[in-house]
């Protein structure tokens, strides 16, 4: 694990002030951290999503990163081509795909292909658990029972675990992260940048308008997800480890009450006690899987 001290972080901004992200936007926190972690080595590849808007319009750009906007389902493949150009032309830099859970749904084959080939890139899926840019529609990572505009009574299906799927693709580096723990995210980005090949970080990004909580509470919400055990921070770099922020919550008695996390969000207001008990059962199951992976890898 790479230890990150706030006082050592660079002051240069790569996401510029005055950008068009919503108040309390988790992507903005993530993009700022990306700049602090990897600076001008980053070349962003951005498929359609909230970040298309955040990047700015007309002749104004919010990024000090070079940025190539690409079709929704294409981003990792575009990064493959860019990485080849950097290598062949002797340019030091990292293609960084920055996409949402939408991009990882529609572009899943492409994500899989780039990972299987171990193409040189870092892919960050900033996951706000629904298609937020088009107005809060259900995605593959939307929480079970969460209300969205296309599941107005609550999603009926389980969410997919993207990071574990990428782990099973034999990616060179896989981690989960959270906008509630940006030093951990920055450390993981730096660790990823020291490894060659295909690197994947699944960033948990609570969305104030999409989930229905106050825009001042993004970080608090992200931390609650970790503290109640619903989001587990881990890292694989050849060895699988549960990250220090999540480690205490392997012990269920240490976890924050799940209702505290769920009841703060409008998308979960309709949940019954039975629903909450079922979510808790699923979280326990997830922990059993992750703890077992620590033994396996």
């Amino acid at each position: 694990m790479v230890v990150v001290k706030i006082k050592d972080l660079p002051k240069e901004k790569f996401l510029l002030p005055g950008n068009t992200s919503c108040q309390g936007c988790p992507h903005a926190l993530g993009l700022k951290s990306l700049g602090m972690a990897l600076g001008d080595d980053v070349v962003l590849v951005v498929p359609a999503g909230c970040t298309t808007i955040i990047a700015g319009s007309k002749d104004k750009s919010s990024f000090k990163f070079p940025c190539l906007h690409v079709p929704f389902a294409s981003a990792p493949a575009v990064a493959t081509g860019l990485g080849s150009a950097f290598r062949r032309l002797g340019k030091k830099g990292i293609p960084v795909v920055w996409m949402g859970d939408g991009g990882s749904d529609i572009g899943f084959a492409t994500l899989s292909g780039a990972c299987v080939r171990k193409d040189d890139m870092i892919v960050i899926v900033s996951d706000n658990e629904a298609y937020m840019n088009t107005g809060i529609q259900t995605s593959g990572t939307t929480f079970w029972k969460a209300r969205t505009t296309t599941s107005p009574t609550g999603k009926r299906e389980e969410k997919k675990d993207l990071a574990l799927i990428m782990l099973m693709h034999k990616a060179d580096y896989v981690a989960t992260a959270s906008v509630g723990y940006l030093q951990d995210f920055i450390g993981k980005l730096r660790k990823a940048s020291e490894i060659d090949g295909f690197r994947f970080i699944h960033l948990h990004s609570p969305c104030p308008p999409g989930w229905g909580f106050d825009s001042s509470e993004t970080v608090e919400m992200a931390r609650l997800a970790v503290k109640c055990g619903a989001w587990i921070l881990w890292e694989f770099d050849g060895k699988f480890r549960i990250s220090p922020m999540s480690k205490p919550y392997a012990d269920k008695s240490k976890r924050a009450p799940l209702t505290e996390y769920l009841k703060k969000q409008r998308r979960f207001r309709h949940l019954s006690d039975e629903d909450i008990a079922e979510i808790e059962r699923r979280i326990d199951e997830q922990w059993r899987v992750v703890l077992a992976l620590e033994d396996v890898f």
Partner: peptide
């Protein structure tokens, strides 16, 4: 598109 050349292509 290359590192340290902060241009944006294809956006809004």
């Amino acid at each position: 598109i290359e590192p340290r050349n902060p241009i944006t292509v294809g956006g809004l």
